[in-house]
């Protein structure tokens, strides 16, 4: 039984039917979806920002929230809104460049490896 929902636009991440595949390019559409979910009562399980990677450096992003409405968690709302604001500002100021194929693979790998690190921790905590 999985108690999580992964919101991701990274094609290398395996998603289940209860996860949310975001088809738009860039971090902002993913964080907008996460923001909407936390207002609907999902709680953030992983931080919306990845590692030390800036939102305008890596267009691929995967965030884990709880599955279903658990009642609004104001810390989640605050973090999700704050990260979305910073991401919008940074992407507007310096949009994504055209990445060569190998760089795209590296960017997806970094996002996936950080997600996996979070999932491992959640697995130990019995969340999946």
């Amino acid at each position: 039984m999985r108690y999580i929902t992964i919101v991701s636009n990274n094609p290398t991440v395996e998603l289940t039917s209860t996860d949310i595949h975001v088809t738009d390019y860039g971090v902002v559409p993913v964080l907008e979806r996460v923001r909407d979910l936390v207002h609907l009562g999902h709680h953030l399980l992983t931080h919306p920002f990845a590692g030390s990677v800036k939102p305008n450096e890596n267009p691929f992003r995967s965030v884990v929230v709880t599955k279903g409405d658990l009642g609004v968690d104001y810390q989640s709302v605050q973090i999700a809104e704050g990260c979305l604001e910073v991401a919008r500002r940074m992407v507007k100021e310096r949009p994504y460049r055209d990445f060569p194929t190998q760089a795209i693979k590296d960017l997806q790998l970094i996002d996936k490896s950080l997600l996996d690190s979070g999932l491992e921790s959640l697995r130990m905590a019995g969340k999946l």
Partner: peptide
């Protein structure tokens, strides 16, 4: 210390 996962 930076410790967030693979390569981090």
């Amino acid at each position: 210390l930076q410790s967030q996962g693979l390569l981090h």
